[in-house]
């Protein structure tokens, strides 16, 4: 403590100096940190979809469903549900393992945590929180069946 007359002014001045300095430091390192974070977080590209021919109607009549591969090579299955034809993804909605289509039991089974889905993709037992993803199916005038699939 000094017995200087304008103690107040000095205090205020040093306070402002410190405040400005901290602010400057925070702003510059903050910006740097923000850019570093952007660098580390991957870009989100909007998903692109493409129509793919997967079957013809005659193939589907009678049979339980048709297994095909999506654009990443993963198994999907085309089934006739109560809302018409649907393509069902076999990526388990629990934690992302691949469920198997078990034609004999007419169900999907996920080996990771024993999730079970019926032919419509609805959960019948196990921990999955929601039905398997379904994709819309289009049938054109020549009875060709198309599915809109996500590109890699």
């Amino acid at each position: 403590m000094s017995n200087h007359d304008d103690n107040d002014t000095v205090d205020r001045r040093s306070f402002f100096r410190k405040a400005l300095m901290s602010l400057g430091l925070a702003a510059s390192y903050g910006t740097g940190g923000f850019y570093a974070l952007q660098f580390l977080l991957p870009k989100k590209n909007p998903a692109k979809f493409r129509k793919m021919l997967v079957a013809s109607l005659d193939e589907l009549s009678g049979s339980g469903g048709k297994v095909f591969k999506d654009l990443q090579g993963r198994e999907m299955i085309l089934v006739s549900t109560t809302d018409g034809f649907k393509a069902i993804s076999t990526t388990c909605t629990h934690l992302g393992c691949k469920a198997y289509w078990e034609p004999d039991n007419n169900r999907f089974f996920c080996p990771c945590h024993d999730g079970v889905f019926d032919v419509n993709g609805n959960v019948t037992s196990g921990p999955p929180p929601r039905p398997l993803d379904r994709y819309d199916v289009e049938v054109d005038e020549n009875d060709n069946v198309f599915v809109k699939l996500r590109e890699a």
């Binding site: 993963r74 198997y100 080996p111």
Partner: peptide
């Protein structure tokens, strides 16, 4: 990546 083994 295409097949989950039966015992994980």
């Amino acid at each position: 990546p295409l097949v989950t083994p039966e015992h994980i």
